[in-house]
């Protein structure tokens, strides 16, 4: 039983899950930079990778509105 408890702790400490959205297919490095900066500013940026041009946010609504406003 002690071992089972220890394993539970092991797993919980070793793996963190966050629900959200993966963004991809940016028009330019500038768009990627602007969006990740904005996501970081509003506190929704969880992970990003410049080389792969991907980032993950916990919420997308504000980013969607931000994108719409930039297109006008």
């Amino acid at each position: 039983v002690v071992d089972q408890i220890r394993l539970w702790q092991l797993e919980n400490e070793r793996m963190r899950t966050t629900a959200g959205y993966l963004f991809r297919d940016f028009e330019s490095p500038a768009e990627f930079a602007a969006l990740t900066a904005y996501a970081e500013e509003i506190g929704v940026l969880v992970w990003k990778n410049e080389k792969k041009n991907l980032f993950f946010v916990s919420k997308y609504e504000q980013l969607r509105d931000y994108l719409k406003s930039r297109k006008k």
Partner: peptide
């Protein structure tokens, strides 16, 4: 850009 919903595992 496109957004795909899912769970990020770290």
């Amino acid at each position: 850009p496109r957004a795909t919903g899912g769970i990020l595992i770290e």
